[in-house]
Structure formats: structure tokens, C-alpha cells
Amino acid sequence: MASLNVYSVLVVLFLTCGAVMATKENDQIIKENNCETKMGLPCVLEAFTSIFNTGSISNKCCDELVLLGKFCHSALVKRTLENALFKDLNPATIIAKSIQTWNNCLALINSPSPSA
């Protein structure tokens, strides 16, 4: 339960605190595309966990991630990496996990549904 609270705090920081440290390019993308309002908090938590820790992302949250869009997804991940709380993370590893999560979700969304 404590880890869920830690992740909740990190997600809130992910969504709100990085603005001061964000590059103008990422900030502009995030603001112009309303990136911070396109995913529900449970799915933000799942995506965050799958990228910044170890976890998986559900089909429902993959839908939300793909609807968020690649530009928003990339800008939010990059902005999070700029936050001092994440200075000890390897950016290349996080970017690779971010791309893997995106590609997995995109493949899932684009795959044909099994017939009933």
C-alpha cells in the first residue's frame, strides 16, 4: 500500500511539478495539446509504473495512452526526466522503456480483435 502512495505522489509530481524545469519545447507541446488532461489518473499511474519502474499496462490504459498521442507521451516522459527527483535514473533506459511501452500499446490497439 505504501508503494501505491509513493507512486501516487510521483504521478502528481509527474503531472504538475515539472513545468518550471521543462524545456520550452516540451512545455509548449504539453500546453498546446492539453496533454495533462487526456488520461485518467489510474492509467497515468499504470503508464508511469511501466516506464519508470516495473509493471505492465492494461489494454484500457493502452487505449488511453495511444489517444494521448506520441508527441504528448514523449514530452511528458522527457519533462519528468528533467525533474530533480529523477536525476538518478538513466535517461536512455527510461526513453527505451517509454518507446517500448508506446510500441506495445500501439501494436495492441492496431491488432485485430479475436472473433467471438
Rank of each mutant, 00 (worst) to 15 (best):
P91H: 04
K38A: 08
S98R: 07
K87F: 13
T37Q: 13
K31P: 00
S113H: 14
F52L: 11
A92V: 14
V77T: 13
A19W: 10
G55Q: 03
C43Q: 03
P114D: 13
V20S: 10
S50G: 09
K60I: 08
A2V: 10
G40Q: 14
P42R: 09
A75C: 06
L45N: 04
F48T: 05
I99D: 09
I51C: 08
N83P: 00
C61R: 04
V77G: 00
G18V: 07
E32L: 09
K70F: 12
G69I: 03
L68A: 10
H73D: 10
S58C: 09
E36I: 14
N90L: 06
Q28F: 01
T49M: 07
T23D: 09
S50M: 02
M1C: 04
E25L: 02
N33E: 09
A2E: 14
N103G: 00
T37A: 14
S50W: 01
S113T: 15
N59F: 11
M39F: 03
K24N: 01
K87R: 13
I95G: 01
E32M: 08
L76W: 03
F86T: 12
S56H: 06
T16N: 11
S3N: 09
E25C: 00
R79E: 12
T37V: 12
I94W: 05
I29E: 03
D27G: 15
C17I: 05
E82C: 12
E32R: 12
L76F: 09
N103F: 00
D63T: 08
F52H: 04
K78W: 00
N26V: 01
I109E: 09
M21F: 13
S98W: 04
S56Y: 03
N33Y: 00
K31G: 02
S3M: 13
W102M: 02
H73E: 04
S8D: 13
T23M: 02
L67C: 04
M39Y: 03
N53K: 14
T23K: 07
V11G: 03
T93V: 15
F71N: 11
N110D: 12
P42S: 11
Y7H: 06
I99W: 01
Y7M: 08
I94F: 06
C62N: 06
P91N: 05
S113F: 14
N53R: 14
L41V: 11
M21E: 13
A2Y: 08
C17K: 07
K87N: 13
Q28H: 03
L76D: 05
N103P: 00
K38V: 09
V44E: 02
A2T: 10
E82Q: 15
S8C: 08
L108I: 03
F48C: 04
I94S: 06
C62L: 11
S58F: 01
C35K: 05
V20H: 05
N5I: 10
